[in-house]
């Protein structure tokens, strides 16, 4: 029968080994040859777009890369789906955008911030998401699942 010290060794040993593998896999994931995000295209404007995205807590309603609140649409492929003029109109609207009656906060964004958010969304849209990009892309409509 298992003794208490063996049980402790199982806990400590298992924890150390899995943490080491986890850290190894993290380093492997971010090695330049494994990059799936077009890191070279991550410009200062994209980073600014990300800050605007965060400072308005867009993830509190929308999802991006499948992460968020499921109250408003997934925006990973939104540039492809809606086009830039539509997004510009939504971000710059002085009154709440309300598709089917569900309201978005009216941001009345200036041109500079709007372009940064669009640059960020474009960068997101080009990431290789291991197949999820096809699931959320309208261009896969009619494509065999």
């Amino acid at each position: 029968m298992l003794s208490k010290s063996q049980a402790r060794a199982f806990f400590l040993g298992g924890t150390v080994v899995t943490f080491l593998i986890f850290i190894g896999l993290t380093i492997y994931s971010f090695a330049p040859k494994n990059d799936q995000t077009n890191r070279d295209k991550l410009t200062a404007e994209v980073a600014k777009g990300k800050r605007i995205w965060e400072s308005n807590n867009c993830m509190g309603c929308h999802t991006i890369l499948g992460e968020g609140a499921y109250y408003a649409p997934e925006l990973t492929k939104v540039v492809e789906r809606r086009g830039e003029p539509f997004i510009r109109a939504v971000l710059q609207s002085p009154v709440p955008w309300a598709p089917n009656g569900r309201k978005m906060v009216a941001y009345a964004m200036n041109d500079e911030d709007t372009e940064a958010v669009i640059a960020y969304l474009k960068w997101i849209g080009e990431i290789d998401l291991n197949g999820f990009d096809r699931v959320v892309s309208p261009l896969s409509k009619g494509e065999k699942q």
């Binding site: 298992l2 208490k4 049980a7 402790r8 199982f10 806990f11 298992g14 924890t15 899995t18 943490f19 593998i21 986890f22 896999l25 492997y28 994931s29 971010f30 494994n34 799936q36 995000t37 890369l65 499948g66 992460e67 990431i127 290789d128 998401l129 291991n130 197949g131 999820f132």
Partner: peptide
């Protein structure tokens, strides 16, 4: 000890289920 051992053994690398479709390997 056995239970928390199982937790870490599965849970640490189980973090991977958040990484399937966010743009990593």
């Amino acid at each position: 000890y056995v239970i928390v051992g199982l937790t870490f053994l599965s849970g640490v690398l189980g973090t991977g289920h958040h990484y399937y479709y966010i743009g990593v390997n």
